[in-house]
Design a protein around this nucleic acid. Sequence first.
DNA 1: GCGTTCAATGTACCT
DNA 2: ACAGGTACATTGAACGCG
Length: 794
Amino acid sequence: MKVVFWLLDVNYEKREEIPEIWMWGINASGERILVIDRSFVDYFYAVVKEDREVMQVAEDIKCQHHASIEKLEIVERKHFGKPVKALKVYCKNPDETAKLAKSLRNLESIEDCFEDDVRFSMRYLIDNNISPCGWHEVEAFEEEPDANVSVDKTFVAKSAPKASEKTSVPKLRTLAFSIIRYSREGSPKAHKDPVVIISTANSSGEEKQFLADEAKNDKQMLETFIEHVQKFNPDIIVGYGSNERDWPYLRERCKKLRLPLHVDRTKTEPHKSTYGHVSVTGRANIDLADYADEFPEVKVKTLENLADYLGAAKTEKRTIIEEIDYAEHWESTEKRELLKKFSQENTRSIMMIADAVLDFATQLSFLVGLPLDHVGTAAAGLRVEWFIIKNTRDEGELVPRRTEQPYMPYTGGIVLSPKPGLHEKVAVLDFKSMYPNLMITYNLSPDSYVSPNMPEPTTGVYVAPEVGHKFRRQSDGFFKKILLQLIKARSEIRSKMNEFSPESAEYRVLDARQKAVKVITNATYGYAGWVGARWYIKPVAEATAAWGRHVIQTTIKMAETAGLKVVYGDTDSIFIAYEKKKVEQLSKEIQAKLGLEVELDKVYERVFFTEAKKRYAGLLSDGKLDIVGLEAMRGDWAMVAKTVQEEVLTIVLKERSPEKAKAFVKQFISDLRQKRIAYHDLVIWKTLTKPPSEYEVKAAHVEASKMLKEKGWDLTVGDKVGYVIVKGSGRLYERVKPYMLASYDEVDIEYYVTKQVVPAAARVLESFGVTEEQLLSVQEKSEGKKLLTDFFET
DNA sequence: GCGTTCAATGTACCT
DNA sequence: ACAGGTACATTGAACGCG
């Protein structure tokens, strides 16, 4: 019978020594099904040395390793575009593929072995062109389901599944959860500290909370929670920080309580995979923290901040309870209610983020071919890499091994020094997807690179400016093929989007898909220059950047020749005085001369530059302000400084009144000194980028993290530390306190005045002759009427 | 011995 | 654990002065 299913998860099991691929899916009628394929045989490639007789080498190996080799084929493949003869070695036991490859690699007749590092289940997906989060068809027969497997039906595949045309996404059951752990002092430890609250919410709109008993025993609660998961039987489980915190804690806690944490579909427990995610067999476990980078506007990526950004704040003002106060809240009858409410709110926030992110996650998984639970934890470079692996199969290109490479930096894009001050009517012209298009135009790819010791092809080469790297003109490299395919796909998706209303499910899915395509397209250049890339060839990235410099420099010259003043530019954009006709004409000329598309990205009514690069603010015709690079956009400045700077920019750009801005700043400083500003707005957040012991100099946020550690609160690399500066003497790092451990009275307000608010404001106002001293002076005359004495203020 | 100078360190941003 | 280019605050040792 023909079975059609949408692939949710895949894993590999071995039953009676037979390797099985298990595909967990959903069929068109919404049944949860398992499709088992017992026919797939793992393999790897052994590339034979050029001077060796391939047949002979094959015979020798077959004899020598007949016990572990299922079969052996002689094949033609490519390695960085170069044709090679290889043996495709099929292995009886997938668990021993790498071992066998390792021993063959030592053979004198073998150059190297490849793809033994592609895991069995990924091998299966790639070879059969199966995409997670996509629909497939398979000839199969139904089998009696295993008692330990919770699905509606189980099938055994008679042949490999085939991708289907269907592009919809089935209705998925999603369960969100968050936990509250009780700890009297410091970070909770699973061996002693119980989980006291688990809050859940699901895609059917139900919310359920589980509580420990009065003696804080959590065993029964955990049991009920596990039952609840099984009963709802979700396809997707979402949490925030769940891979690093919740799952490991629940696992350890359950182990201690001798309770099997059976939340999956096969009665096994969540397990940490090599990719860093926690895998729940038969479901997709997703840690939404892995998608927090999708929201760069949110600087401190707490659950609350993300939810607020996504619109939670509009509905209701929540009370945030710090982890440090959980125990106290649990102990008090009234406060416990607040804690319960807070916990449920957290889960609601998780659901909200899931709504904002899951379409994208699904489409990314479908595009790059990594299972839904892997794709989130996979770093950008690995997402690109799996996409390449999936899409170079038909090329016959072997997947290179990851090798240790020396890091050699190279020159990147050009940044122009801005013309400081205010400018009226400035157009921003930029090249559409400049790097991907350069890679297409000049065939920049790992397999089309012509190294200095290679003979130049008769059909000619492209020679990159400045750096001189050569790439063959004829026969497209796989980067070019892939990028063309991606760009075409995106424009097709975007035109299809027009057929639907922006509110429809179809539109949402398509939008998520075009976003996924864009992400992979734009990351390809970065991938090319990444030393850790399997297909790392430095000249590919270096030549791309060199062509980019050539293009932007040519563009600048053409603009100037056309009589257009260039005010600023960065990598793939130029800011020019806006003269409609001339700019339109220029765009056409650039397109004709360079073969790349330029776009009039925006026109600023007015734009402000300091002398620094990468920092400016522009006013758009709809009254919106674009602030770029300045303190107001940074996460490591106190809110007081950011809001003041934003207001200053607004006044200066909209009203052109530095005087008014100055008055505003002075008023604000006065308010600040009178403590009329929220304590929260004084907190400074900085990331701990390495273990505290590895810092070479003392730093405020590191000292703050040490103080937290003293109190038992562990922070790990990547965490943000929130601190305030308190009164006292000595270096800054000697006057720091974690914000939860300090009070307003201790705060050194003058630090915030002189080192946060004034510098942020002066960054803008100094261009207009307003000095830091003037902002700090108390008796300044208003309305801009300056007295002689104003110039002598200190 | 003390204040000043400046390269190094560290973080976060832009395209 | 995608690239390079850039700004800026703070540290801490070298430096200059006397």
